[in-house]
Amino acid sequence: MRLGFNFWLGAGLTALVVLAGILAPWIAPFDPVLDADLMNSELPPDATFWFGTDGQGRDVYTRILYGAQISLTVGVVSQLINSIIGVTLGMTAGYWGGWWDDLVNGVTNVMLAIPSLIFALAVMAVLGPGLPSLLVALGLTNWSWTCRIARSSTLSLKSLSYVQAAQTLGYGDLRIMFTQILPNIMGPILVMATLGMGSAVLSEAALSFLGLGIQPPFPSWGSMLTDARQLIQLAPWVAIFPGLAIFLSVLGFNLLGDGLRDSLDPHMRTRNP
């Protein structure tokens, strides 16, 4: 199996974010919240403060490392929720058809008609700000495309004769869905999930920017951008580095998704001799 440059670049960037998040307590030179020192505020990057300091004199580098934890958790957990909901609904709707298909289609269309960020805002308004409600809000709002892709892939696979063969061999419906259909629709679903991780990171940043996500003083890339808004002309590094972190992690997720799709395609797989 030969993986392209893009895959490795994506995997590298993703690994960088994962390592930053996991190792933050050990490799961060300061505390993200408590080491505020107004005497040091708005310092440009130097040897002590690699990425400079923000308005309260906190180290931006430290806060970005800790922010990776939030972004990763939001990306992975919300996409897991999205994929499970989307695949379950889409695959069963495509396989069984009938009234269940009509119902799932109706709900999916309603979900698609509501702007997901607005819907997430509404959920956050009900649940209150904070990480758990952020996960629920983003997990419940972005499954419609996954559901559509799962449904249409299932529909096209259902008519193939290996699915009929499984029926004549005595497989039950659930077994057919799990052994015959799911492995063959995983490629696009996985790509959707990794691309969705990127957009979940963006949504988290947007919600935090709007003040509904992670609450200050705890660091998330989005809330750091909110804080940077007033300083952007005086201390651009306060905005540039969180923005760069968002950009690189979203790019990483997207490249990883593309690379995974290619490697999961069985036509590109060769047997080990």
């Binding site: 290996y162 063969a165 499984a166 004549t168």
Partner: peptide
């Protein structure tokens, strides 16, 4: 049991 017409669609590629 059944033998299907299209040998390219009758086997699960995975």
């Amino acid at each position: 049991q059944m033998v299907f017409q299209d040998p390219y669609a009758s086997l699960n590629p995975r």
